[in-house]
Design a protein around this nucleic acid. Structure first.
Lengths: 239, 239
DNA sequence: CGCGGTGTTGAGACCTGTCAAGACGTGTGG
DNA sequence: CCACACGTCTTGACAGGTCTCAACACCGCG
């Protein structure tokens, strides 16, 4: 059930059987949530963190005027709010973009890990830092890239992240976001998302229909995105 | 010397004398660097992290075309690259915006902390998560706010962060960035930064001259920024 | 005393947003 | 089973925020 999460961790460092056991037993409960629900509300006191088993979640920040920014997308194996363990409450919401299966991890068990398993602690700390690195890359995108590069960048990133857990095959993966949601992630209106998608299709770089994204020219897509996967820290080293 | 850092930590949780001692002894070396140097180069293997004693640092990400995004600003008391402890190398550079005094903290000593001081470990982990939260707010700014709100947002944020360490008095603080650098932080050209600054001055919200920022109307500035300091996690709770 | 960095200003271009309308598919209730 | 509402995708015309390019003033510094 937490296999995808183990794959993510083991892409970065060795995980001992003792640590694997601790990870398996840290889950207190598994719940299913429908599409389009607010799973975590900003400001709430949080007694547990949420490991995503299947489906897509998004971290979102809203402004009073109704503008919404998706600050990160989460796929199977991601801890959507591991940072809530130390923060205690969050500055953003977490919403379900699809139907999702979630594993709840009580903060007390994470605390036990920090008391007893320092190496695993460092690996979990690492994962929040990788999250932050992805955030930085999005910041770069929003600040400096134009729409078409931004979109290409995101598609490249997801191809790598989904590849690790086996959810991207032959540079092709399920992509359930609507154009409105894609705009909220990229800082664009849905109208401009539509036109930008058409441009990517016209250049024969991608196809996107029926919630499935096919990258037709990965090299070309990477070039437009100026994509360098270093920020995903996909290398295995002792932490 | 690490007083500002202790202030930052103690704003979030109690720090015991044993933990304070560990923090004081983790520094192996203090170095001064001139203005406009690359202090940390992306991709390098890093044996230590950098605690900023005085001056300003910035995390920057560059694109092949020369575009530069400042992804975070660091002031006295900030660990500029604590995340490098688990990441081992960085996806961004760290540059000095002013002359700086830096305290170097070997990763081995941080590792010792994770082995022996779980509570302090959680507090340090927390600080990287607060960094990430600031990053998220910047992502929101770049994606959804227009230039004037973005700039107001940054000035409000720095007022709070500098206030904690005593470097903002009466909503007034030293602000050494050039307009070019401010643009790199806000995702704007220096020309537009110039015009936006003029607009903030015209509305009698701020003054900025001689590297000193004076907030003349904090309430008004907050309103334009739609500023909510929750994302800075300035509350003290057991972690 | 000249040079480079910084700040300022103007004119025009361009990327992206706004507003509006229509096509299409799907689910639902009469 | 059809009518209708609703969300999503698409397209066009136009507006607007920000960028580009260029020039100039100012200032500290070698």
């Amino acid at each position: 059930m937490i296999e995808a999460h183990l794959k993510k961790l083991r892409a970065r460092d060795d995980i001992s059987t003792e640590e694997e056991e601790a990870l398996r037993t840290m889950v207190s409960q598994v719940v299913d949530v429908p599409q389009d629900r607010t799973v975590i509300r900003h400001g709430d006191d949080l007694p547990h963190s949420t490991l995503l088993i299947s489906g897509w979640l998004a971290r979102v920040k809203d402004l009073p005027g109704g503008e919404r920014q998706i600050t990160e997308l989460h796929v199977a194996g991601d801890f959507a709010d591991l940072h809530a363990f130390t923060l205690k409450r969050l500055d953003h919401d977490v919403i379900s973009l699809t139907r999702c299966r979630l594993a709840l991890v009580p903060h007390q068990r994470l605390k036990d890990i920090t008391e007893n398993l320092p190496h695993l602690t460092r690996v979990l700390w690492l994962m929040t830092n990788v999250d932050a690195s992805i955030q930085r890359e999005w910041t770069l995108s929003l600040g400096q890239r134009q729409a078409i590069s931004r979109m290409a960048q995101l598609f490249c990133e997801l191809n790598v992240r989904l590849g690790v857990i086996g959810l991207s095959q032959n540079d092709s993966y399920d992509f359930p976001l609507t154009q409105v949601e894609l705009g909220q992630a990229l800082g664009l209106t849905s109208v401009h998302v539509n036109r930008t998608l058409q441009e990517l299709r016209r250049r024969e770089l991608i196809d996107l229909e029926g919630g499935r994204l096919r990258i037709r020219d990965l090299q070309g897509l990477k070039e437009i995105a100026e994509f360098d996967p270093a920020y995903l820290y996909m290398d295995k080293r002792p932490r």
